[in-house]
Design a protein around this nucleic acid. Structure first.
Lengths: 100, 100
DNA sequence: TGCTCATATTTCCATATGGAAATATGATTT
DNA sequence: AAATCATATTTCCATATGGAAATATGAGCA
């Protein structure tokens, strides 16, 4: 699954947001999400396959960490759009200056 | 549908990319996409509902234009992740300097 | 070895999705 | 008003998706 498709699901974005604060074992993610354990595990699988998270086994726990590389790609895709909307904002500013 | 979900489909991203160059009538998008006309029309509907495009009727044509606002939201969501990966790249750089 | 904890996988179900084909709509031309 | 052009909507189908419940796996412990 592509990074874009992985990000389409709100719970998966929430998982990534949680991992921004640092790595966490799967169980901790389950606590925060209010989803069933198997449900979270499925989402983690999708995120793994999209390369958005990495797992490490530590004792009986599976510790998940953020892998931002696929997001870099999304960020690059957005690049030309940033030019587009800042152009628009500039035009708005000029308009406001000329019509105060 | 959320902007994220709208972006999950490659053809829809392609449509947005085409609109970066300027507005275009639906038919022109059909030509470029190699999809059936109804197929493209469905994707356009999704993009409309996600607020990613605007339509204007011009004679018998329907001219589509990019509306970047929802992408700004995605860009904002990405913001903290940028800090995350640049931190990582910095660490890599230091490593390379110290181990040339 | 048997037991328990943490997590993954499987199964089932209802719903959503994308594509192709057919049809409908609305504006322009004749 | 009828015909035509551009596009939207509907219908059908196969496949994907997310969630809940049940089950399986694998590591550490008694």
């Amino acid at each position: 699954m592509s990074a874009y498709a992985a990000l389409a699901e709100p719970h998966r974005r929430q998982i990534l947001d949680l991992l921004l604060d640092g790595e966490r074992p799967a169980g901790e993610l389950v606590e925060h999400l209010g989803l069933s354990q198997p449900g979270v595990s499925k989402h983690l699988k999708v995120l793994r396959e999209a390369g958005l998270v990495a797992v490490r086994t530590e004792g009986r726990q599976r510790v998940y960490a953020l892998r931002p590389e696929p997001l870099v790609e999304v960020d690059r895709w957005l690049e030309p759009y940033r030019a587009f909307w800042s152009k628009r904002l500039d035009a708005l500013e000029r308009h406001l200056e000329e019509n105060p």
